[in-house]
């Protein structure tokens, strides 16, 4: 397509503007993390006076960052693995079978996206406490309740996206497998799943990111030993608000795994969104 001079100018200015808006905070995170404490206590400096990695060392003893980190890692990993597994099964049923209640289930799952979290936070807390009193299975104040909660919170969007993805895989493939004598579970495992890998990866990233960042349920369902990063960080700022270099070092530590994972998988994410959400 022919590109006029005006278009090129607008494009340059537009992209540059978006780039400055996006990158400035990212630069601030990284540059502040390697500043000495003196650089962050008075006026803002663009360039660190010296580069030091002291903040990365100190941050582990200032707050129990390692514990928050491990808690978040356990919660996000378990909930996303279970969420993906359950979503795959449910989405396979919706995509490949007609059964009574299918539309009802689909609509009910989607409509849960509308629930304000605050509506079922209090009842959920009370239900977990009661389950604990009745069965001795403790679900509040530790990680298990949080895992169950997150895996459910991410299920609806995951099912929705995977149904779209499975629908885009030709049925002839499974039919051929069934004719060859494979069971439906075998067909799902060795024919549908490999073909749907991008969608499954996308859903897994979504579930992991959501659990990694969630603060509302974590603030009520955890105690000081089971606190996750999302809750730990909020108090972090009130406690040591002047140690900005340490806060930014901690931000780098907790962001790098997730951002790296996201960027490595972004191709899958775009494919997954295109098949699942857009079409």
């Amino acid at each position: 397509m022919h590109e006029s001079r005006t278009f090129r100018t607008i494009r340059f200015i537009g992209l540059a503007g978006l780039m400055v808006f996006t990158v400035t905070p990212l630069y601030v995170i990284v540059s502040t993390a390697v500043k000495p404490l003196g650089d962050v206590q008075n006026v803002f400096h663009w360039i660190p006076s010296t580069i030091t990695f002291q903040a990365f060392v100190d941050v582990w003893s200032t707050v129990p960052l390692a514990r928050y980190f491990v808690n978040s890692l356990i919660v996000a990993t378990c909930s996303s693995v279970f969420s993906v597994a359950l979503a795959v099964l449910a989405a396979y049923a919706i995509s490949r079978y007609t059964f009574r209640g299918r539309e009802l289930f689909r609509m009910a799952v989607l409509s849960t996206q509308m629930f304000p979290g605050i509506l079922f936070l209090l009842p959920l807390y009370l239900i977990y406490v009661n389950i604990g009193q009745l069965t001795g299975l403790k679900l509040n104040g530790n990680l298990s309740g949080l895992i169950i909660t997150y895996l459910t919170l991410t299920l609806p969007f995951s099912i929705w996206m995977l149904v779209g993805y499975f629908n885009s895989i030709p049925r002839d493939l499974d039919e051929a497998g069934l004719v060859d004598g494979a069971s439906p579970t075998r067909v799902l495992w060795s024919i549908v799943l490999p073909a749907a890998r991008p969608g499954i990866v996308a859903v897994g990233i979504y579930a992991f990111m959501t659990s990694w960042s969630e603060a509302l349920f974590a603030s009520v369902l955890t105690d000081s030993a089971s606190k996750t990063l999302a809750v730990g960080f909020a108090e972090f700022t009130t406690q040591i608000a002047v140690y900005w270099n340490q806060i930014m070092a901690a931000s780098v530590v907790v962001s790098v795994p997730i951002v790296a994972g996201f960027l490595l998988m972004q191709r899958y994410l775009v494919q997954g969104l295109t098949a699942g959400a857009v079409k």
Binding site: T22, I29, M209, S213, A215, F233, V254, S255, I258, F262
Partner: peptide
């Protein structure tokens, strides 16, 4: 680069 802010955990 544009996608990084979305990938970043909300609290950071």
């Amino acid at each position: 680069f544009f996608l990084i802010p979305y990938a970043l955990p909300v609290f950071t």
